[in-house]
Design a protein around this nucleic acid. Structure first.
Lengths: 201, 201
DNA sequence: GGTTTACACTAGCGCTTGCTTGGTTGATCT
DNA sequence: AGATCAACCAAGCAAGCGCTAGTGTAAACC
């Protein structure tokens, strides 16, 4: 029973679990269903994970880690202007929501099923991610790009972005890039100043 | 076993069920927990509802009906300008999210637990509500109050509003009215005059 | 060559689940 | 006074749940 390791087998199992958790919900997904999806018997599952809770925690941790590193990377590789940084964050957020969709849906919908210990550990990760966002929002406010209350603006933006998992169609014409652009345009109209940016759309 | 009636007792039970579903989630709420909360034995529960699914459907229907009638009422009692109508809708949405919070949280989080029949029936109700929203968004776009893609703007706005159930504190200083005002200000800044909009599109 | 390790299996324990059954109560109607 | 009816209860069934115990096996390591 190896609890904390990160074997490639365990990672693959985590991926499959995420898929099932999205399809059925955590509570309705039985260890027998998980095992079958993984091609093993239900007993064998507990060699890889201490209990069912740990599978949930593994799924959410995986998704959050990816989101965090993708966001950091996006901020490093973009320009310095508040608009560019805001756009980069929105785009990174939507891209991880797309590529790691299952994990993120689980994180959004099944967070409350985590036990106290796992929730405590994972909320630190999530806080780190949200701090990144608040910094970028602050910059946008200072630059006069967006107006309003710091707390409310960041909540509204996170809501608009996270809500996409409910309606976004990966097969459709719209790319994460497009959504990010449209969102930034909606809350920070390009009509004022910065003549260099009036080319898009 | 009266299935479709609307006795006051049933309404009260529905309210209690909504509270439990929010606290524990639908799957983890057992019929025994529901019965205890209602002050009856688990067997008696099935006199009021055909099965557990029907309780869930009743909770969601109640919430959606209230949201719909509140929104219609708000649109009747507000001014004609696109801004006023947008603000009225946002405010009505947030107010029903506050007063019927439990029912709406259940609708948002447990929708997928509905069986096909209930989901079909309730999605018509929800569509009626979303149609109201899209009309108001359309008016805002035509009036030049907001810019962007019709579909995306309405999805972003709905996301920002619905996300509030995750962080809004009814005991806090902010009223639904304030949130609505701030949201409208964010996506439709008041700085520009209505006449000065001739340059766009 | 012997021991360890990783991974899988079978079998089932103890418990909870949604729901059913058969029956009782007290108020209301005829 | 008898019938009706909504509302409730005690008891329990069949199925399914998470998880454990004990064992087998093939590759890796000393």
């Amino acid at each position: 029973m190896n609890a904390v390791n990160e074997s490639p087998r365990r990672k693959e199992l985590t991926r499959l679990a995420a898929q099932l958790f999205v399809q059925e919900g955590f509570d309705r997904t039985t260890v027998r269903m998980l095992a079958q999806e993984m091609g093993i018997k239900s007993g064998s599952l507990f060699h890889h994970f201490r209990d069912k809770q740990e599978i949930l925690a593994a799924v959410i941790e995986e998704g959050t880690q990816n989101a965090l590193s993708l966001a950091r990377q996006a901020l490093e590789n973009c320009g310095d202007s508040a608009r560019e940084r805001l756009h980069a964050m929105a785009r990174a957020h939507l891209e991880t929501l797309l590529t790691d969709r299952n994990a993120h849906v689980v994180a959004l919908y099944e967070w409350r099923r985590l036990d106290a210990a796992a929730r405590d550990h994972l909320s630190h990760l999530r806080d780190a991610y949200e701090t990144l966002w608040e910094q970028v929002i602050d910059e946008a406010l200072e630059a006069g790009l967006v107006h309003g209350d710091r707390f409310l603006v960041s909540r509204f933006v996170m809501g608009a972005l996270n809500w996409t998992v409910r309606w976004y169609d990966p097969e459709g014409a719209r790319k994460p890039e497009d959504l990010a652009h449209e969102l930034v345009a909606m809350i920070a109209p390009a009509t004022q100043r910065t003549a260099a940016e009036s080319t898009k759309v």
